[in-house]
Amino acid sequence: MPDSPAVEAKQLTKRFKEATAVHPLNFEVHAHEIFGFLGPNGAGKTTTMRMLAGLLEPSGGDGCIHGKSIKSQPLEAKQQLAYLPDKPDIYPKLTGWEFLQFIASVFKLDKNVWIEHARSLLQRFDLTESAGRLMETYSHGMKQKMALTGALIHQPSVIFLDEPTVGLDPKSSRDLRTILRETAADGTAVFFSTHMLDVADQLCDRVGIIHEGRLLQTGTPYALKQEHASYAEATLEDVFLRMTAQKVSQGSEGEIP
């Protein structure tokens, strides 16, 4: 891969009529990195990810995937990325295998390579048995895992995941974290949003905190805790709540340090 950042937001902005959902954002995510995008509901996380994945037209600025502009070179950019939405609605009238073959066709993957890769992913997600069934019969978690399998079979260099752990059982959630680590180790940039701050704390190399459409800060979880926490045992959750100025109910665990 070239030296350019895997993901680059340059003054990336989104306005809906009168309201500005995302104020000009600037940040970078690099290969081998797991970047957690944190923020309260309605902060602009999904909007930002959808703009970077080419699902939403930015009102201003641009997003680049390995130097390819998502606005002016969308096909080249999309060749390198995968996106997993929070609600993975995938073709209900296709079986799991047919869906994966569709993805393999779009990315022109070699038959032996994609089948082998798909089999190994399906096995890890306990989907081997159900991959021959129509996806309309899947539970939310199964759809999530099948969509993730589809996102990973073409071995993207950037993967966007919007709340990927929602709806997953504990084993699948742990498997997902392991897969994301392995994927990042192989050189992929992983960009994901989550509300599960303990997961972000353990998994992310860096996090970005967004609030009301503005990126408050980016940094490693450790650095953020060092900068914003006033006591040694402070967690990322404490930092997050402090930074987004949310009130926490009374109690020893919830006190703002």
Partner: peptide
């Protein structure tokens, strides 16, 4: 669910893959 398909095959050309998806739907 009565439909079972467990034999994945070659990647198709993109228009044909889209056409096949439509046919199944």
């Amino acid at each position: 669910n009565k439909i079972k398909s467990t034999r994945p095959g070659e990647a198709r050309s993109v228009p044909y893959a889209i056409a096949f998806k439509e046919w199944r739907a």
